[in-house]
Amino acid sequence: MQNAFLLIRRLPNGMQNVPATMLREVGIDDKTAASLIHEAKLDVLRIQRDQLLRECDKTQLPDMPITTEKRAAWARYRSALRDMPENVADLDNVQWPVPPAE
């Protein structure tokens, strides 16, 4: 994820929605900036993950017309999504789980 497009929701000094590239200019030290950027990247990852989970919620409904094997494959995919961000080593190069073939 590019820092140029990353917004920090709230800074310790109360400022809101500050681009990550401007943290130094608004008086945030490097250690705090790194922590804020890391948390913002986690937030973005969680938002994307939650959207992917919502998109495949229907695969787990009992009246969804798919095979037991396909339902299990979707369950494994959803489990891999839920394990994020804990299993992500590099927030700048996220390897997303691949959904089962339709």
Rank of each mutant, 00 (worst) to 15 (best):
M1P: 13
M1D: 07
M1K: 03
Q2E: 15
N3W: 01
N3V: 03
N3P: 00
N3Q: 12
N3L: 05
A4L: 09
A4G: 09
A4H: 12
A4F: 14
F5N: 13
F5D: 14
F5Y: 15
L6I: 04
L6C: 00
L7E: 06
I8D: 06
L11R: 10
P12G: 06
N13M: 05
N13W: 01
G14E: 07
N17R: 10
N17K: 14
N17F: 01
N17Q: 06
N17W: 11
V18N: 05
A20G: 11
T21G: 02
T21W: 08
M22H: 15
M22I: 06
L23W: 12
R24T: 01
R24S: 13
R24Y: 14
E25V: 14
E25P: 14
V26A: 02
V26T: 03
V26N: 12
I28H: 11
D29H: 02
D30F: 10
K31C: 01
K31M: 04
T32Y: 05
T32I: 15
A33F: 00
A33H: 02
A34I: 02
S35C: 03
S35P: 05
S35D: 10
L36W: 06
L36Q: 04
I37R: 15
H38M: 09
E39M: 05
E39N: 08
A40S: 05
A40R: 03
K41R: 15
V44E: 04
V44T: 04
L45A: 00
R46P: 10
R46S: 09
R46K: 07
I47F: 11
D50T: 11
D50C: 05
D50E: 09
D50N: 11
L53A: 10
R54W: 08
R54P: 15
R54I: 00
R54F: 13
E55G: 10
E55S: 08
D57A: 03
K58H: 13
K58W: 14
T59L: 06
T59Q: 05
Q60G: 13
P62G: 11
P62Y: 14
P65T: 14
I66V: 05
T67H: 02
T67P: 15
T68Y: 12
E69M: 01
K70M: 12
K70C: 11
R71T: 03
A72S: 12
A73D: 07
A73Y: 10
W74H: 06
A75E: 10
A75V: 01
Y77W: 04
S79A: 03
A80R: 15
A80S: 10
L81F: 00
R82A: 04
M84D: 11
M84Y: 10
P85F: 12
P85K: 12
P85A: 07
P85T: 05
E86C: 01
E86A: 12
N87S: 11
N87I: 09
N87T: 09
D90H: 08
L91Q: 05
L91S: 09
D92H: 09
V94Y: 09
V94F: 01
V94H: 13
V94Q: 08
Q95K: 02
Q95V: 00
W96L: 07
W96Y: 04
W96A: 09
W96Q: 05
P99Q: 13
P99T: 06
P100A: 01
P100V: 04
P100W: 06
P100Q: 12
A101F: 14
